[in-house]
Nucleic acid binder design. Structure first.
Length: 260
DNA sequence: ATGGTTGGCATCCAA
């Protein structure tokens, strides 16, 4: 089973890229972030034509998450959750579904703008609530995959210039501690099961030729619960779509699991 | 220190 994550930065604009990439990579499950679409405008028909069914939780202009599953695998979505229980939040940033034998939680983590900003406080609070939610999810569903745009670079290997970034947004110790609280629950960064070197990134700013110079961050992650860790066969970052014309600023990440 | 690029939507906010 191949499971992928991609922040598409507007699904409306990126549908040609997404359908091309689905045809190339043929993932079984794909978590999307920043769809920026109301549910009524979700491109159900285009994705069905590409061979994928979808669940989605969107809003106008901002945020928005979706999970796709290959139609020909006989997979269906069960126990869909679009909100953290008890958290009244209009921002569409979380979507969970059971697909086959795997529980999938798609996250579009708050960016936070800058350390000390009110959005930063919201980010840390949101991550606390996500941690509590995931503690319950992993208890109910040991075969748990938590993936998405985490807007946190786990450590300095995941930052092109750690001195310049320092303890700024996406790299600050409280953000990294919030991510570590998730990995400490037995949610393993799949990429680091296979690669220890730095310099592998999933996001590059649109400005200043950042992609060409590989000035990026690795902030798109696929975390695997203990019960799935030994099933992992590969974890990859596909830089190809970032080279295409009018790309998302993020590129897809994928894990291959040795399960049906 | 500042600004640069993109998307959505309306000429500003978010990333």
């Amino acid at each position: 089973m191949k499971i992928a994550s991609w922040n598409v930065n507007s699904l409306k604009v990126r549908i040609p890229h997404l359908t091309q990439w689905l045809a190339d990579a043929r993932p079984d499950v794909v978590a999307l972030q920043e769809t920026k679409l109301e549910d009524a405008k979700f491109p159900v028909d285009e994705l069905a034509a590409a061979g994928y069914q979808a669940v989605y939780a969107g809003q106008k202009t901002y945020n928005g998450v979706a999970i796709l599953a290959r139609s020909d695998q006989g997979l269906s979505f069960a126990d869909v959750v679009t909100d953290i229980p008890g958290l009244d939040d209009p921002q569409r940033r979380i979507l969970a579904a059971t697909i086959g034998s795997v529980r999938v939680v798609d996250l579009y983590v708050v960016n936070g703008k800058a350390v000390g900003d009110e959005k930063y406080a919201y980010k840390l609070h949101w991550l606390e609530r996500v941690r509590d939610f995931l503690a319950e999810e992993i208890r109910r569903h040991p075969r748990l995959v938590v993936l998405g745009d985490f807007n946190i670079a786990p450590d300095d290997r995941d930052v092109h210039d750690p001195v310049a970034w320092g303890e700024d947004i996406l790299c600050s110790p409280p953000e990294r501690a919030a991510l570590k609280a998730l990995t400490d629950m037995g949610l393993h960064d799949s990429f680091r099961l296979f690669e220890q070197a730095g310099g592998h990134f999933s996001w590059w700013d649109y400005r200043q030729g950042a992609f060409r110079r590989n000035n990026g961050l690795r902030i798109d992650l696929i975390l695997l619960g203990d019960a799935l860790k030994s099933s992992a066969r590969a974890a990859t970052i596909d830089r190809e779509p970032r080279r295409w014309e009018r790309p998302s600023d993020h590129t897809p990440v994928m894990v291959e699991l040795d399960i049906e």
